[in-house]
Design a binder for these strands. Structure first.
Lengths: 233, 233
DNA sequence: CGCCAGCTTGAATCTACTCAAATCTTGTGG
DNA sequence: CCACAAGATTTGAGTAGATTCAAGCTGGCG
């Protein structure tokens, strides 16, 4: 089994808080025990007890809510370096179902008690996760379809750069239009039309599993999008 | 100055985790140092350092995001017993602006280190807050205007019951239609029309600052709305 | 080759928005 | 107690953005 970018999650956590040796060792040690999952695998089920928190090494996952009538909403995306089911303290149950969107490699998240720097990294990771939830609310509540798509792409670009797996203007992008729709509160048909518009407007390229933003900075400015206020500055 | 339901926030925290004497004392002590704010007061500003976390004693507040072009989105509601600007650990900056929606009484949140039971209550409070954010995302992403309104009312009913300030079927409700619109990602005109529909459908009564749900259980079932999976069971 | 998932297209419909004006409430000062 | 102003709610008509349904297309893979 080939494991791709094993150090991406480490790079992320280390960017959030300078990790010391104990933390580094704990992460490398955990990573060696990585497990692999196919797409559409339920990693966590809402309301169930959490066996142990996971750390994503490679691949994308999402928190999801499914309604009785079949409507689906992806609540948030989880990328390499993100924690799944980590709770600051005694919270035994998952607040949402989590599914893998792609092939996914994850390991047991190292225990934060091995190092204060690791604890700090987890804490900041949680803060960032909250920031992304807030951004998602603003997106769904007040942005048009076209704006939602661009705003999401910019957020992903930012997150993947933190991981060191994005170029200045492009990154690997594994989501189908259907999944984008479920994430953005739209229909896949409409996502398709808006993507075509964005392409014609020269804003982006999307194809062959790769997304290119022709001018990320200008796009961000056009949307009035501030960089996610990161709390570790 | 009259302070209304001083023990509501205590009731909430105590419901989240059986508080011991030290915690109880710390809360009562803090409450005595309560401060009062008018409506539309900025309690926290996004990106600014957090002086100290607050505990709401009475009144409603909201996390809010304002766009460059004036669009506004209320990200979440904060009710008595909720914490403002509390962070699991070293997170010095506010992840969103917080404003009071009504007259508001708040005090400095007692330090969780005085009692493990208080720490536990805070921790569960954070978990609940996350659950409400997720619910808000699902609401905005996949529910119709009518469903959003009803779902919000049911959530508020549930939260206020935890505080002991809601009847079986009604509660004090201080939001204008404009604010509901900003919270639900709609326009106030449309909120108005949907409320009229809901009234005609016999689902609710809204007037004079009070909301009555004619049959909360039936409404919840009609929406396929599970009770917020509370993590402290 | 042919299947299947994902993508694209079109036409009709519907939900929610915009703009504008009228009405109702509430609190305040005369 | 009434007049008034400011804020909040209600109403109407026209429009725009997104959905629905249905069909056709494309590319990768067994």
């Amino acid at each position: 089994m080939k494991i791709g970018n094993v150090d991406a999650p480490f790079r992320r956590l280390n960017a959030l808080a300078q990790l010391d040796e104990a933390a580094t060792f704990a992460i490398l040690n955990s990573v060696s025990s990585a497990r692999h999952f196919g797409p559409h695998h339920q990693l966590l089920i809402e309301g169930h007890k959490i066996a142990c928190p996971l750390l994503i090494i490679e691949g994308w996952a999402a928190r999801v809510r499914v309604f009785a009538d079949g409507r689906r909403q992806l609540l948030s995306l989880l990328l390499p370096g993100d924690l799944i089911g980590f709770c600051g303290h005694s919270r035994p149950r998952a607040s949402s179902t989590v599914i893998s969107l792609t092939d996914l490699t994850a390991c047991i998240a190292p225990d934060p008690s091995v190092s204060p720097t690791l604890r700090e990294a987890y804490s900041i990771s949680s803060a960032l996760e909250e920031a992304y939830l807030l951004a998602q609310i603003a997106r769904l509540g007040r942005l048009s379809a076209h704006e939602r798509i661009c705003d999401l792409f910019l957020e992903l670009h930012e997150r993947l750069q933190l991981l060191g797996v994005a170029d200045h203007d492009s990154f690997k992008f594994p989501l189908t239009q259907e999944k984008m729709a479920d994430l953005l509160g739209l229909t896949s048909v409409h996502v398709n039309r808006m993507l075509q518009l964005a392409r014609k407007a020269g804003e982006l390229h999307l194809g062959a599993g790769r997304l290119t933003l022709n001018d990320p900075e200008m796009l961000a400015q056009k949307l009035g999008r501030p960089k996610t206020r990161v709390t570790f500055a």
